[in-house]
Design a protein around this nucleic acid. Structure first.
Lengths: 250, 250
DNA sequence: TAATTTTTCACGTAAAATTCACGATAGCCA
DNA sequence: TGGCTATCGTGAATTTTACGTGAAAAATTA
C-alpha cells in the first residue's frame, strides 16, 4: 500500500492558541504548507485566498460557527475536512459529518493518528483530483470568479458577495443562486432546462419566464449598460452563459 | 447539504456473532443490502461475488488477518472500508489507515455515529464513481471534433462552440444540432431520413428542403469557399457527411 | 403593517425556422 | 456525345418562436 506523503496545503482553523501553534509546528515540520486562523470569518477569507487541499477544523469558534463555515466551504470546495473537537457527543459528530466533514477526531487525540487520517483523506482526494483532471465535465471550482478587470464583475463564492464596477451589490437568494450557477460554469452555455432544474428544482422546465425575469434583474444590478450585456449573455434558443473568467493574476 | 441516504450493498466482516447480527439487523432495517461473514478468507470470497459498495471490517479475525484482507481487497476494489475494532492503540489505527482503510472506529461505538460515517464515506465514493463513469465510459463520443488543422473546423461539444478558420462561429440551435449529428458520425454518410429524424424528429422524412437550407447556412458560415465544400459533403441521392477527424496529435 | 422578494402576464422586437420559386449540376440512357 | 431527369444549390419572402421589457399581483419576511 502506498503511504503517499505528499506535501500539501493545509488550513488549520483552531481557537486555542496552544493547540494552533502545536499543529502548525508539527505539520510544518513534516513539510506541509500550513495556514492557521482563529475563527470562522477568518477561515472563510483564508480558504478563499489559500485554497487549501485539506482543512483541520475546530468546531468551537468565536465568530462564525464551525458548522456554518463547513457548509459555506462546501458550496465551492471539495477539500477534505477533518473536524477536531473537544466535544464527544454523538449528535455533534453526526451533524458535522452530515454537514460535509470527512472525519471527526475527539480531543485529546494522538498526533500520529491525526497524520494517518490526513494521509487517508488525501489518498481519496488525490484519486478524485486525478479523475477530475481527466474527465470532461469536472472542472475544479474556484473560490472567486472575476471578469472584466477591476471595474468588472466579481463573485466571491466563499462570502456570497458580488461586486460590479468596484461596488458591492446586494442580490436576493434566487438571484445569487442563478448567478452562482452561471459563474461556476463560466464559458459554458447552460440550457434553460439545466438552469431551471438547478436553481428552482425539477418540474420547472418550460417556465422560461422565470429566467427572463431574473436575468433582467441581474443585468440591471450588474451590467454597466443593461441594454448591451457584457456578463450575462444569451444563446438564442439554448440558454444563458457568462464569459470565461479573467486569466489568473490579471 | 446532501444527506444521501441511498440503499447500498454492505459487506460486514465480523468475528463476534452478537455484533454481527446486531449490525446485520440495524443496517437491513435501514434498507441496505447486507452480507455478513466471519473471517478473512470468507470475506475475500464474498467480496468477489457480492461486490460491496462499502465494507465494515473487524480487525481481529480467526483465519485471515483483517489487515491482510484489507490489502488484498485494495488490489482490485475501491470500496470504502470502515474498520471497527476493540483495539484503541495508536499503532494499530495507523497501520489500518495506511493499509487502505478509510475510517477507524473503536468499539464500543454509537450506532448513529457509524451510520453518519457510512454516509460520509458514501458521499465521497459516489462522487468518485460519478467522475469515473464520465471519464472512462468506453463509447462516449469524443469531446471535440476537428478536421483540417488549425484553420479547419473545430466542434467543441462540451461548450457547444464551433470554430472555423480560427474564428468562433455562431450557430443557431438547428444548425448546431445538424452539424453535431454529422460530426459525431464523422466519416459516415447519414441519409436524409436519418438526419431529418434525428434533428427535426420523426414525421419529417421527405422534407429534404429543410436539409438543403440548413446545409447551405452551415456552409456559408463554416466553409472557406462555400462553392467547393471541404467539410459538409453530399453523397448524391443518399445524404450528407463530414470527413473523418484529424488523427489525434496532428 | 410595510418592505422585500417571487411569481405571473401581455406586448414589441429581433432572430430563427419554414416555405417557395428557380438556377445549377451530376448521373443516366439513347 | 447530347439531351433528360432527379437531385442539389441558391436567394429571398413569410411565418413562427424566443427574448427583452415594464408592470402588477401574490407570497414571503421583518
Amino acid at each position: 500500500m502506498t503511504t503517499t506523503d505528499r506535501k500539501i496545503r493545509i488550513l488549520c482553523v483552531e481557537d486555542d492558541p496552544q493547540m494552533r501553534s502545536f499543529l502548525l509546528a508539527q505539520l510544518r515540520a513534516r513539510g506541509h504548507q500550513v495556514q492557521a486562523v482563529r475563527d470562522g470569518a477568518q477561515a472563510i477569507d483564508q480558504a478563499a485566498i489559500f485554497e487549501p487541499e485539506l482543512v483541520l477544523l475546530d468546531l468551537a469558534l468565536p465568530t462564525l460557527d464551525g458548522l456554518a463555515f463547513l457548509r459555506r466551504l462546501r458550496e465551492w470546495s471539495k477539500a477534505p475536512v477533518i473536524v477536531l473537537s473537544a466535544r464527544d457527543e454523538e449528535s455533534v459528530k453526526i451533524k458535522a459529518l452530515d454537514s460535509g466533514a470527512d472525519d471527526y477526531l475527539t480531543k485529546p487525540f494522538s498526533l500520529n493518528e491525526l497524520l494517518a487520517r490526513v494521509r487517508a483523506a488525501m489518498r481519496r482526494a488525490d484519486e478524485a483530483a486525478r479523475l477530475r483532471s481527466g474527465a470532461a465535465g469536472g472542472e475544479l471550482p474556484r473560490p472567486v470568479y472575476h471578469c472584466g478587470g477591476p471595474t468588472g464583475l466579481v463573485v466571491d463564492f466563499a462570502h456570497r458577495q458580488v461586486r460590479s464596477g468596484g461596488k458591492e451589490v446586494h442580490l436576493t437568494p434566487t438571484e445569487y443562486d442563478l448567478l452562482s450557477e452561471l459563474t461556476r460554469n463560466a464559458g459554458k452555455v447552460l440550457t434553460h432546462r439545466e438552469l431551471l432544474q438547478r436553481v428552482w428544482g425539477s418540474d420547472y422546465s418550460g417556465e422560461n419566464t422565470y429566467l427572463r425575469t431574473f436575468i433582467r434583474h441581474l443585468r440591471r444590478k450588474l451590467e454597466p449598460d443593461p441594454a448591451q450585456p457584457r456578463f450575462l449573455l444569451n444563446e438564442l434558443g439554448v440558454g444563458y452563459y457568462v464569459p470565461p473568467p479573467d486569466a489568473h493574476g490579471a
